[in-house]
Design a protein around this nucleic acid. Structure first.
Lengths: 114, 114
DNA sequence: TTTACATACGTAGATCATCAGAATATCTTG
DNA sequence: CAAGATATTCTGATGATCTACGTATGTAAA
């Protein structure tokens, strides 16, 4: 997890298609089933940072109602970083989810759960 | 990921048995196959914090060579928090690892790229 | 029609976990 | 005997995130 949760979800939100900031917030909410609520302060700061790191790129910039609307695209490097992070997360999850209790409380077939 | 990587690995290190600080550093290294190197500053600060949050507890305190050696145990609450976090990590990983390529940008055979 | 919410971007200030590194001290290994 | 492992503690810095604003328009409800 060199990457923090908000950053990870920002990149994950861009897997399918370029999105603008506000759409990323909504997409992250969907992807996490409401768990992740990106604060705008977090989002725009992160997008600037990620653009600097070349993990995302501004793919389009429109002017809507006199205001910029920037679409962000995941770069190749961004996709690689995202997948590496996903692998790290899966590894981290596994050491707990696949943790065998040290002295096997063997559940025999047909056993009734407590 | 309300929990950061070092914190997660600290709790995960205590799944099997109580360990003292330095042993946690080594165990986290093992569990992550060398990926996670806990800095001592991170570790001891985190242990204090986690003890305050009742996710770990000092289970034994020895004096070895005139220096305290404290063994930390995962509490029930700590185990619950660890497993919840593992589930979150697994969910997060899944949205990337099980990501189907977006609805077929169908390139017909012989099509000329834009 | 006024209220309120959704859309949309941006900034400022604060928090806090983490990182880097040093200090201290003993024991073991080359 | 020097180096590295063992073991804890503290200090200072970094930096991603959070809270909370500010701006502006469109739209649906009261």
């Amino acid at each position: 997890m060199r990457m923090r949760e908000p950053t990870y979800y920002i990149l994950a939100s861009l897997q399918d298609e370029p999105l603008h900031g506000y759409a990323i917030i909504k997409r992250a909410g969907e992807l996490s089933r409401g768990q992740v609520r990106l604060a705008t302060g977090t989002l725009y700061a992160a997008l600037d940072r990620l653009a600097g790191e070349q993990l995302v790129r501004v793919s389009d910039e429109q002017i809507v109602n006199g205001r910029a609307r920037r679409y962000y695209t995941l770069t190749e490097a961004g996709l690689v970083a995202l997948r590496e992070e996903a692998a790290r997360l899966a590894d981290a999850a596994r050491i707990v989810t696949e943790h065998g209790p040290k002295t096997a409380p063997v559940v025999r077939p047909g056993a009734v759960p407590a």
